[in-house]
Amino acid sequence: MKRLSYFLFSFFSLALLSSHDLYLKLDSYFLEPNTTSALQLFNGTFDRSENVIDRDRMLDVSIAYAGQRIQAAQQDWFEKDSITYLTITTEGEGTYVAGVSTKPRVLSMSAEDFNDYLEHDGVLDVLESRQENDQLNDAATEEYSKHVKSIFQVGKTRSSDYGVQFGYPIEFVALNNPYDLHPGEEFRTQLLFQDAPLANQLVYLGYQPPALTHTHDGSTHTHEQDQDHEHSDLIPYRTDENGELNVALDKPGVWYLRTIHLVDSNEEGLTHQSNWATLTFAVADYHQHEDSSLVYLYILGSLLFIGILYFVFSTKKA
């Protein structure tokens, strides 16, 4: 099974380089309360954004925290290079969820381009169906929209907001808090389509090691990756009959899920409709929640404790 995963993963590592996924990302998924940071909208691959998203395409931009859902203001967005940024200021401690849902667009493709896209983006069920039904020579006109979420942690206190449902046409809803997890533990999520569980759907799990994101002089940034290293941990999964997915997160770092739900369409002028979803979050290192200054406090405390005991026993003896 593992071998099959590695094989499929090797296949997709090359193929997905040209995909146009949408991801909501942060330089660091561990923020402090009352600080300003920037959510980044990557349109392309997880590692490289190829173009910005026009603001009029955004149907919804939400941030959920402490049981509330806040809509982001237009003026908080800015674009730089090919990345769209949203400035956010955190409030209290807790687990936050950010989400972006885009308006549908229509794209017409030749049969060859459509087949390539299905193959490269891992929409293998539809490709297989086209092969079986002798439709590989059919051109396509597809209406697509993208719906992305990111879960991040502010301060140390975790909250139940991780499981918020934004009501997007398709979305991943976390069933446990990734910031409660340590490397080696399982993350559970449910994939919803039109508010109902989406069973037997192909979902890909990706990973970015923490080495690529680190802090210099108080600011956290992500290094550019070389192309060969992209999608180095992409693993295919399928949702179960309840639309649920359990994935083992064996390492600390940034993890992401992506899926494309593509179906035939009966609407006039369309052959297909697709909804794309991604979810990004991070898994802390085993000790990342702890304050390293406590080590020194522990050493000093231990020495002080031994010193006091030594004094007591010396005095007793005298």
Partner: peptide, 21 residues
């Protein structure tokens, strides 16, 4: 002091980077 005990085996990201490859 108590929290310090949880750091006894601090596996740093630097160590992971060293071991990767």
């Amino acid at each position: 002091m108590i929290a310090g005990f949880t750091l006894i085996h601090d596996v740093t990201l630097a160590d992971r980077r060293i071991l990767e490859g």
